[in-house]
């Protein structure tokens, strides 16, 4: 079984702190990390491989420094990694990203399962997974919390949706996106770390994946960022202690009435 996992390097929120005065988020230094949801994707890929045999290929699109993220997942046990990197890929929105990743999946070929995290924590869109499935013309199961059954030909999985779970079955190949509940990602092993150091990570550009240059990066992106602003989230909240609970309750009920909640 060939499993492709898509991962993204994102800014680490641990290095962000809230400025008490302005209420805005201030970032101290720049630390990057693997998008947390993608670690669940990698872990699920490794578990499928252990069950079904085969290989796990991890791909990522990003600047050269995203190679670090790929080395990290080699440490977890991923067999092969490919970094999609080129100035022409930069500035991609979710459409152009999906297109680029789908082109890479096509180039890798013969995949049975493609796994993505449910969303990346920087953009929170949850659009790239289904976008890849659309480009490849394969079915999708998003927000998977459990794979109930897997065989060489079929999959049955549970989706986490509002108010419950949907059980969906499908023939392979399939693209799934996973939520945190699905597993507990393993840590890199010592042997894995050594492998990670030595591993050769292929770099692919637009030519290698036969991408249409008009459909990648900022030029290929249908959406454009018009403006970015930092909202002022500072609040002049009222603080009460336990002796002032009557006043606090009054404040809450007043607000509930205002909002039509009672």
């Amino acid at each position: 079984m060939k499993i492709i996992v898509c991962i993204k390097q994102v800014p680490d929120p641990e290095h962000a702190k809230m400025d008490a005065k302005s209420g805005t988020v201030v970032r101290e230094g720049v630390e990057l990390m693997i998008n947390p949801f993608d670690l669940y994707a990698v872990e699920e890929g490794l578990r499928l491989k252990e069950k079904m045999r085969g290989e796990v290929v991890a791909i990522s699109m990003g600047p050269p420094q995203a190679e670090e993220a790929l080395r990290e997942v080699i440490g977890m046990g991923v067999d092969q990694c490919i970094l999609l990197t080129s100035r022409d890929f930069a500035g991609a929105d979710t459409w152009a990203t999906s297109y680029t990743l789908a082109k890479a999946c096509q180039k890798i070929g013969d995949y049975d399962v493609i796994i993505c995290g449910k969303q990346a924590i920087d953009g929170d869109t949850a659009q790239v997974g289904p976008g890849i499935a659309a480009q490849l013309g394969i079915p999708q199961i998003t927000f998977v919390r459990k794979i109930d059954e897997i065989s060489e030909k079929n999959i049955k999985a549970e989706r986490l949706v509002e108010g419950g779970y949907e059980v969906i079955s499908s023939p392979l190949p399939i693209l799934i996106t996973v939520v945190k509940e699905i597993n507990e990602p393993r840590l890199p092993t010592l042997k894995g770390r050594l492998n990670a150091k030595k591993a050769e990570i292929a770099h692919w550009g637009p030519e290698e994946i036969a991408a249409d240059k008009d459909k990648i990066g900022i030029n290929g992106s249908p959406t454009k960022v018009d403006e970015i602003f930092t909202p002022d989230l500072s609040k002049d909240g009222k603080i009460f202690n336990i002796e002032q609970l009557d006043a606090a309750a009054e404040e809450i009920v007043k607000k509930q009435k205002e909002m039509g909640l009672i």
């Binding site: 929105d93 979710t94 459409w95 999906s98 953009g123 929170d124 869109t125 949850a126 659009q127 790239v128 997974g129 289904p130 976008g131 890849i132 499935a133 659309a134 480009q135 999708q140 998003t142 927000f143 989706r159 986490l160 949706v161 509002e162 459909k215 992106s221 249908p222 959406t223």
Partner: peptide, 20 residues
């Protein structure tokens, strides 16, 4: 979960912009 899964797939096929 429905709206996101649906529009991402549709925008992917149509080739148009989708904002989440």
């Amino acid at each position: 979960t429905q709206g996101r899964a649906l529009l991402s797939r549709a925008a992917g096929k149509i080739y148009t912009g989708l904002t989440a």
